[in-house]
Amino acid sequence: MLKIQGLTKSFGDNHVLRGIDLEIERGDSLVILGGSGSGKSVTLKCIMGFIHPDAGTITLDGDNLVGLEGRARSAMNQRVGMLFQHAALLDSLPVWENVMFAPLRFGRVSRREARKAAVGWLERVGLDEAIAGILPGELATGAQKRIGLARAIAAEPELLLFDEPTTGLDALVGRQIDALIRSTITDMGATAITITHDIDSARRVGDHVAMLYQGQIAWSGPAANLMQSGDPVVDQFVHGRLTGPIPVPALPEARA
């Protein structure tokens, strides 16, 4: 189980997180929904240890994730897989080395075995063996995301984090990525957190959804209830209304 309690983070006078409390059962998929600047990415970065929170605790099956450094952080990160917003593949390494980076890094497999295993992971995310030897920069964004997903799951982590998985993708490829994420979570039985502002993606990927607004959880519940939450903030956000509790900057009137 992943448990977040009282997570707080400020950057100067900007109070991004104001006491987040979340509990995610093992094997459950939680989507954190929210607008730009609502603190979704900061929450994810706190879980990954890229940012140290000002206060609060994060535990994975009872093991602390906050303030870890060096080997303790390294050991914890082996239990966590992450798909970055823009895939963040290492562009100096071929696709297969990207996929098998962590197993190779810890000497769990030889390079020959790794290449073979990488092909298996690539097939699992719907990619052909032919791309294994090429550099990621030569591939389309959708393929890069799939490779990022293959890399995230190749170490068979307990916790999977997905940072805006459908950003920058067309509707069809986005749908494919969502389906892949969903099947991966189910097959691996891993706990998953996805952050997104894509409502359709949230409903496809999540078992539960938490709406982040002004640094706090405004609403949480089953993904199936998202569209009828009864919460005015969620309601405005998911239906894209310009009026409601979320302030929307006024635009200059269009010229005739």
Partner: peptide, 12 residues
């Protein structure tokens, strides 16, 4: 491009 973050995420 977050590749350095990715390295850390991969325990490196």
């Amino acid at each position: 491009t977050e590749q350095i973050d990715a390295l850390e995420a991969l325990s490196t």
